[in-house]
Amino acid sequence: MTEFWHSNKLPHLESRRSCQESASYRPHSHDRFSVGLIDSGSTVFSGASGYPVPLAAGDVILIPAGHVHACNPDSGHWRYQMIQADQDWVGGLLQEGTTELVSGISVYRQPEMYGQFSLINELIFTGAAPGRIEAGFREALAACAEREPAHRLLATTDVELLHRLNPVFIRLRDDEENPLLDELAQIAGMGKYQLIRAMKKLTGFAPLAWRQNERVITARKMLREGRPLAETAHALGFVDQSHFHRVFRAHVASSPGSYRS
């Protein structure tokens, strides 16, 4: 069972409460800052580096926007919550000198952190005043900054490589159909296997996987705005709604219709 929350009154926030019984996520990223809470069961988190981090009930994980990751249960039943917020909004809540919270993935194992973020999610789902939600977020982030995380996975960006691959990103984002790998490699001035390695180093994704992830991010935004499923699928170049449904579920672990409602 999965329950989503999003509202036009607080467009910078969305949330979910989920119960999963099997592995269901492929590596993906978000365009928002994510706060994950493990309610019960255990799971294994992996980032772009592939370094696995076991998570258990009561753990809190902060994932800045753009960080590729996957999180699936070891076995059996698990429950979790995920709050997502525009990263600029989160940045405005941070105290001076605490930017490490948006520069890398952090895992906290203090029960009070789990309690603070669980309360925030309860406020979100029960329609509390925006000011109260914002104050709760500010206090929870300040508490995170005062504590040493159990794990911190920092990301580095190769600016020269990013500049070299920018034309590839544009082609992947703008083409109506999947570009051929040979064409993308030619654009970057690389061999195709060199391009795959370079893309994975920079983003955590192979070229077409990066394109699919970007399409799902855009689809989520369109669905939050209330756009029809068929219109969203067509606008993003999916062959049909069935294809859109399969790709969306692989990234979000829920159908487009359930996410939109």
Rank of each mutant, 00 (worst) to 15 (best):
E139D: 07
L229D: 01
L119F: 09
S40E: 14
M1Y: 08
Q212D: 15
G191H: 08
E148S: 08
H67A: 05
P130H: 03
I83C: 13
P54W: 04
H243I: 06
S24T: 10
S42H: 04
A142L: 02
E100F: 07
Y51C: 12
D39Y: 05
Q95E: 13
A70T: 04
D88M: 11
A209V: 07
G58A: 01
I187E: 14
R249T: 15
L208W: 07
S118V: 04
S18Y: 03
I105P: 00
S242N: 15
V107A: 07
D175L: 06
H30A: 13
G257I: 05
R132P: 00
P228T: 07
K201Y: 13
N213E: 05
V60K: 01
T203E: 01
G97M: 09
Q194N: 09
P54I: 10
R147D: 06
T203D: 01
F4Y: 15
G36I: 13
L202E: 04
G66D: 02
L10H: 04
F45M: 06
P11Y: 05
T203P: 03
E96S: 15
G226R: 11
H67R: 09
I83H: 12
F117V: 00
Y80P: 00
L181I: 14
A150G: 12
H245V: 05
W78Q: 09
L165S: 03
H163E: 15
R227F: 08
E177T: 08
L180I: 03
A143V: 06
E134A: 11
Q20M: 15
A70I: 01
E148L: 08
T232W: 10
D175F: 05
A209I: 05
L153C: 14
A85G: 06
T203A: 00
P167Q: 07
A233Y: 01
A140R: 00
S42L: 01
Y193M: 08
A209Y: 06
E112A: 12
R197D: 07
R249V: 12
F45Y: 15
G115M: 09
A185S: 10
V159I: 10
A219H: 04
S15A: 15
S242C: 12
G226D: 03
L101D: 03
H163F: 14
Q186A: 15
H234Y: 05
R17V: 06
A70W: 00
K192W: 08
A129T: 10
I120V: 14
E112Q: 14
L229M: 13
Y80G: 09
G136N: 00
